[in-house]
């Protein structure tokens, strides 16, 4: 779908993947604010959400600047329908219980860290600048989510079971993180994007190390779902966007 498009259109499509994944995950974490197991965790989760939201705005703003006519971050966030979103499926999985949220976060953060490291070396100065800034924030996210995975996995029998269940579910959406489709290939060749497939061994060895400390095991035969980046999403994203976009859409043209 992307091979015949102009470089600007390809770049904006690639940036949407980054902007949408961080936006949807931030939106999900907002749902925890005020409802976390402890006050400290309320602060921590909203901190992560705030970082991701800030990163998303930078990616979306850059994406919109490459479109004709130019699109603002809010037009992109509020006026697109689900099939126009380019986030990976992992981030749209429901919050579930605290283990579901932390395992989702852990798998995302561990990938996000490596991705940003690669993008910080991008030949596109703006991609490199955004990635370098975000990388510092995400290192802290990964530290926290790794600690939670260990606490939950190594905690009580119940928390262990919840963490293992969460892992079974989330692992179905890991394949997509490393799948290189036509757009990923084109961006890699242009020196802008990252070689996702090449990151997988390093990612897996880190994940295995944390899971060992948590006494958890990585699921045997996860599914290989990977359509989120191309705009094929699950039902949950539709509901999430309805909540997120309703107010903006029911007041067309309004400034907030």
């Amino acid at each position: 779908m992307t091979t015949h498009r102009t470089p600007g259109a390809q770049l904006s499509e690639y940036l949407l993947r980054l902007g949408d994944s961080t936006l949807i995950l931030a939106q999900q974490l907002c749902g925890w604010c005020g409802h976390a197991p402890t006050l400290e965790e309320d602060v921590a989760l909203s901190n992560v959400a705030l970082d991701l939201l800030g990163q998303s705005r930078l990616w979306l703003d850059y994406a919109g600047s490459q479109m004709t006519p130019r699109q603002s971050e809010d037009q992109l966030a509020y006026q697109r329908d689900a099939e126009q979103f380019r986030n990976v499926l992992l981030v749209e999985q429901p919050n579930g219980n605290f283990a579901d949220t932390q395992v989702r976060q852990f798998l995302f953060d561990s990938w996000h860290c490596l991705l940003l490291r690669e993008l910080s070396r991008s030949s596109d100065a703006q991609v490199s600048a955004i990635a370098s800034k975000a990388r510092k924030e995400v290192a802290y996210h990964l530290q926290r989510s790794s600690e939670w995975v260990v606490r939950l996995g190594d905690g009580t029998a119940r928390s262990h079971a919840y963490a293992q269940q969460a892992l079974a579910h989330c692992a179905d959406h890991v394949h997509e993180l490393f799948a290189m489709d036509g757009l990923d290939q084109a961006m890699l060749h242009a020196g802008i994007g990252a070689d996702l497939a090449a990151l997988k061994p390093e990612w897996f060895s880190y994940v295995q190390q944390v899971l060992a400390a948590a006494r958890l095991s990585y699921p045997q035969n996860p599914l290989n779902l990977d359509a989120g980046k191309r705009g094929q999403h699950g039902e949950h994203l539709v509901g999430l966007l309805m909540e997120m976009q309703y107010l903006a859409r029911s007041n067309p043209g309004a400034q907030w």
Binding site: R57, Y246, W256
Partner: peptide
């Protein structure tokens, strides 16, 4: 907090998220 997921612009969402986080800090 109820309005965090419903804020009508990303800027306002950020501002509100930071505020609610501050309130949690005040409680701490």
């Amino acid at each position: 907090g109820f309005w965090l997921t419903r804020a009508p612009s990303l800027h306002r969402k950020c501002v509100l998220l930071a505020k609610v986080q501050d309130e949690a800090g005040h409680a701490q």
